[in-house]
């Protein structure tokens, strides 16, 4: 038995990585989602829109500034295996859906956090981009990761007249 494992060591290393990828990957994903949900609740009162229409902004504008949030999330070994298999059969690559979802929501959250720090009341004209670092990300021996970036214009309300003095 031990001899057999030694002879096919690369196969067992592969199995080990898949199991590790699944275990650690799903644990991290669960934790990440928990943190995303908590912070989303906290930032729920900060409106974000994709429009720049004046009716969303209102007439009281103190300052406008660009806010950006970005994140790079990595694919785990298990997800990559699922994606490779999915490429054979076709259909929804569910293992990457959660990855892209997490990355995008995290980027928006970071942008909102930056906006709140600046005291913004509203973020308008939000734009989202996703890109992959390391081309052909699910090839062997290559870093597979997704980068999400969210940017928009934060509208900061004018300081109340009484605050100046």
């Amino acid at each position: 038995m031990g001899e057999f494992i030694l002879q096919h060591s690369d196969f067992f290393i592969f199995i080990f990585f898949v199991a590790l990828g699944y275990g650690a990957g799903s644990l991290m994903e669960r934790n990440h989602y928990r943190s995303i949900r908590k912070r989303e609740q906290a930032l729920l009162s900060l409106p974000v829109t994709t429009t720049e229409h004046e009716s969303f902004i209102g007439s009281e504008i103190g300052e406008a500034t660009l806010v950006v949030g970005s994140v790079v999330v990595s694919i785990d070994y298990f997800k990559r295996l699922l994606a490779i298999l999915r490429n054979i059969f076709g259909g929804a690559v569910t293992s990457y859906e959660s990855l892209v979802d997490r990355a995008r929501r995290e980027a928006i959250l970071r942008m909102k956090e930056a906006a709140r720090q600046q005291g913004a009341a509203l973020v308008i004209n939000l734009r989202l981009e996703t890109s992959a670092i390391g081309q052909q990300a699910n090839r062997k021996r290559q870093v597979g990761s997704v980068e999400a970036i969210a940017y928009g214009t934060a509208i900061i309300l004018p300081a109340a007249p009484g605050d100046d003095g």
């Binding site: 699944y22 699922l82 054979i88 509203l122």
Partner: peptide, 30 residues
């Protein structure tokens, strides 16, 4: 000219963008 559109803060079902199949079940099927 127009008054500001009010913002309603509501949270949504956040799993809409993720399929609900279990990854291990998917692996075994495939």
């Amino acid at each position: 000219m127009q008054s500001k559109i009010p913002f309603i803060a509501r949270s949504t079902d956040d799993t809409v963008n993720v399929s609900r199949t279990h990854p291990l079940a998917e692996l075994f099927w495939m």
